[in-house]
Design a protein around this nucleic acid. Sequence first.
DNA 1: CATGAATGAGCATTCATTCAT
DNA 2: AATGAATGAATGCTCATTCAT
Lengths: 217, 217, 217, 217
Amino acid sequence: MPKPAARPVTRDPEKKSKIILKAARKEFASAGFDGARVDRIAAKSKHSKGLIYHHFQSKDELFRSVLVQMYQELSEENKELFLEEFEPQAGVIRLIEHTFDYFANNPDFIILINAENLMKAQHLRKSEDVRKSFEPLRASLDALLKKGAQQGIFRPNVDSTELYISIVALGYFYLSNMHTLSVVFDKALGDEKAIAARKQHIKELVLGFLRNKEPDT
Amino acid sequence: MPKPAARPVTRDPEKKSKIILKAARKEFASAGFDGARVDRIAAKSKHSKGLIYHHFQSKDELFRSVLVQMYQELSEENKELFLEEFEPQAGVIRLIEHTFDYFANNPDFIILINAENLMKAQHLRKSEDVRKSFEPLRASLDALLKKGAQQGIFRPNVDSTELYISIVALGYFYLSNMHTLSVVFDKALGDEKAIAARKQHIKELVLGFLRNKEPDT
Amino acid sequence: MPKPAARPVTRDPEKKSKIILKAARKEFASAGFDGARVDRIAAKSKHSKGLIYHHFQSKDELFRSVLVQMYQELSEENKELFLEEFEPQAGVIRLIEHTFDYFANNPDFIILINAENLMKAQHLRKSEDVRKSFEPLRASLDALLKKGAQQGIFRPNVDSTELYISIVALGYFYLSNMHTLSVVFDKALGDEKAIAARKQHIKELVLGFLRNKEPDT
Amino acid sequence: MPKPAARPVTRDPEKKSKIILKAARKEFASAGFDGARVDRIAAKSKHSKGLIYHHFQSKDELFRSVLVQMYQELSEENKELFLEEFEPQAGVIRLIEHTFDYFANNPDFIILINAENLMKAQHLRKSEDVRKSFEPLRASLDALLKKGAQQGIFRPNVDSTELYISIVALGYFYLSNMHTLSVVFDKALGDEKAIAARKQHIKELVLGFLRNKEPDT
DNA sequence: CATGAATGAGCATTCATTCAT
DNA sequence: AATGAATGAATGCTCATTCAT
C-alpha cells in the first residue's frame, strides 16, 4: 500500500525561505547590493516583503544568507572533485577546468563576491561556517603538488595557496571583467571560441609553470 | 567712466570640473555606483549639487567621465614603460611589476572597473576614446614575446592578449578579492609580506611558463 | 480503561492574562500608546502575540484593560485610607501624603493617564466600572472639610472636588513634568531632597489655604 | 510715490519653514510624537515631505524646533507681564490668571510638553536656548513675594520656584487631564462655567495660602 | 488554548534631478 | 556660471492584525 503523497502544505516556512533566497540571489546578482531592491525580491519570490523581514532580519542579513549558501554549494562541489585520486598532472588539469567552468556557469557568484568585497567582506566575516572553507581543497592541491614534485614532474616548493588563487584569478578575472576588457581590447571575449581559448591558455600557463623545473634566473 | 567688472579669478570652470571629478572618483571608489551619493560628491568637492549637474549632466555621465579619466591616466603611465627598449625577460618583468604596483597603488581603479562591469560596461561603451586603448601596450608585449622566442628564451606562439590579461588577472584579482579571500583562507592577505610574496609568485608563474620550451603533453 | 487526559497545570488562562497585562503595563508606560509594541509585550510576557490577541482583542482593548486595572488598584488603596476616622487636619494631611506617594511610587500610572488623555479618554469612557470611581474618596474629603469648618479650623464652603483635583495636581504635575521642568528651571527636581521639599510645600499650601479663615479681598 | 508692493516671491524658504512648523505643531499636538505622521504634516503644510527633511533633518529635529518655538513664544508673553510694576497681591493674581489663560488658550502646548516628558525631555535638553528660560519670571515672582512679606500681606519665606510650579500645576493638570477626570468624577469639566470655577478656586487657594500668616501647626 | 507564519498598509527617510533666482 | 530650495518616486523597514495549523 503506497504512502499517500504528502499533502502539499500551504504553510511551509523552509520552502518559502528557499524561494526567497533564490530570488534574492538573482536580484543581488543583477544589481549588486546597493542596486538590489527588496521590493523586487518580494515580487520575484511572490512573497510579501513582510515575510522576507520575518525570516531574514534585514537586507544585509538576507545578503549574508545568500553568500553563505553560495559558498556552501561551492564547497559541496569541490568535495566531489576527489583530487587525491588523480595523478598530479591530471589532478591539476581537473582542478583548473572545474574551477573555470564553475565560474563560467555561475556568473552570479562573481557578482556577489565582488559586491561583498566592495563592502570589505563585512557579511562573510560574521559567518563562522565560511571561514577556512577552502582549506580542504587547498590541502588536496598541496598533496598533488608534493606528489608531482616527488615524481619529478612538477617544480618543487610551489605554494598551494598562491597557486590556487592564481588558478581562480585567471578564470574569474576574465569572466568578471569581460565587459570592460571587450571594450579596451575591442574584441568579443564572451563568445564560445574566445572562452575555450582562454581556458586553454590557463591550462598551458599553469602547467607550463609547474612543469618547468629549471631554476629561475 | 564705469569700472569694468572685475572678472572673478575664482570662477575657473575647468579647475572646478577637475575638483568635482576628483571628489567623484573618491566617492564612487568608496561605495560603488549605486552606493555613491551626489550629495557627498558635492560636499567633498565643496561645490553645489547644481554645479555638478551643470558640468556633468547626470550621475551616469559623471561616472563615465571618471572612468575615462582613469583609463587615460593608465594609458599615459603605460606609455612611459618603453617596453621595446628592454630585453625580453627584463621587459616582461618590468610589465608585471608595473602592472601589479599600479593596481596596488590605485585601489580606486579596481572598484570603479568592477562597478562598470556590474553595469556591463555601459558607460565605457559610449566612450570612443577608450576603445582599443590597450592596443599599444599589447603590441609592445607582442614584440617582446616574439623577440624572446627568436632568441630561444621564450616559448613560441604565445598570445599576447591572453598573456596580458593573465598578468593583470593575477594581481587584480588578488587585490580586488583580498577581503573575501582573507576570510575563506583565514589568512591576512593584505599585509606587506603577503603582498610581496604574491608579486614574487606572479613573476615566477609567468616567467616559468614563458621560459618552459618543452612541448605540453 | 483510557487514561484521562491530564489537564496541564501550566495552562492557566487567567494567570497568563495577568502576566500579559503586567507586561503590557510596562510597555505602555515606557513608550505611551503609539510607541508601545505588541511584539515587545509578547516578548516581555514570554507569550505569543497570538495569545495576546486571543485574550484581548486589540491593542486598544489591551490598553483599556490595563487602565481599568490601574484605576481599580487605586480605588482599593483609597478605600484603605479611612479618612472619616481622622480629625480634619490629620485627615487632609493623610490624603495629601498618600496621594503624592502613590504617584511617586507608581510612575507608570502617570504616563498611562497622560496617554489616555491624549486620546481624549476614549478607552475609559467605555469602561463603566471606572465611572465615578472617585466618588467615595470625594465624599470622605467633603465630610472632613465640613467637620473642619464646623470646628472652626477650616474655612467654610470649600468645594471638595476642586480641592481634591488640586491635591492631585500639585503632586502629579511635578512628577509628570519633572523632565522638562528640570531643564527650564535648570535644577534637578528628581532627587530625594527636592521631592521631599515638594511634598512639604504641597502640605503647607493646602493647609495654609484651608486654615486661613479671613475673607478674601 | 508708493513703494511697489513686494512681489510675492515663490522661493521664500523662511516663510515655508514657518508654515511647516505650524503644521507640525498641529500634528504633534493632535497625536503626540509617535502618533504624528510626517505625511500629514506635509499635507497640512502643502509642502513636500522632501522639503520638510531639507529644512529640518528628522522628525525629532522638527519636533525639537516646534518645542523651542513654543517656549520662546511663552517667554515673550511672560516678558509682557511686567509683574514688578504691580502691588504684590495684584501681581500674583495677574500671574495666576495669565498662566491659566495661556494654557487654556494653547491646548497644543500641554500635549507637546507631555509628549516631551514621555521622552524624558531628550529634545529640550539639546536646546541650549530653552535652558533657564523661566528664570526671569521666577525672579519677578520672587521679588513680589518678598515685597508682600515686607508689607506684612504675605507669609514670609515662600519658595518662588515651588510656588510657580504650583500655580502652573493647578491649571495645567486640570486642562491636561480634563478627559479622564471628567469620567472618574462623572462631571463635564470642560464647560465654561466649570473652567471659570476652577480659575477662581486656584486664585483662592494660592492667595489663601499666601495671606495666611499664622504659623503652621 | 496556543503558536508563529504571513500580510499589507504604512512609515520615516533618501536621493537623483530640476528649477527659480 | 552658480546656488540651494524643492520635488516625488522610491526604499528599507515596521507593525497591528489575521490565519493555518
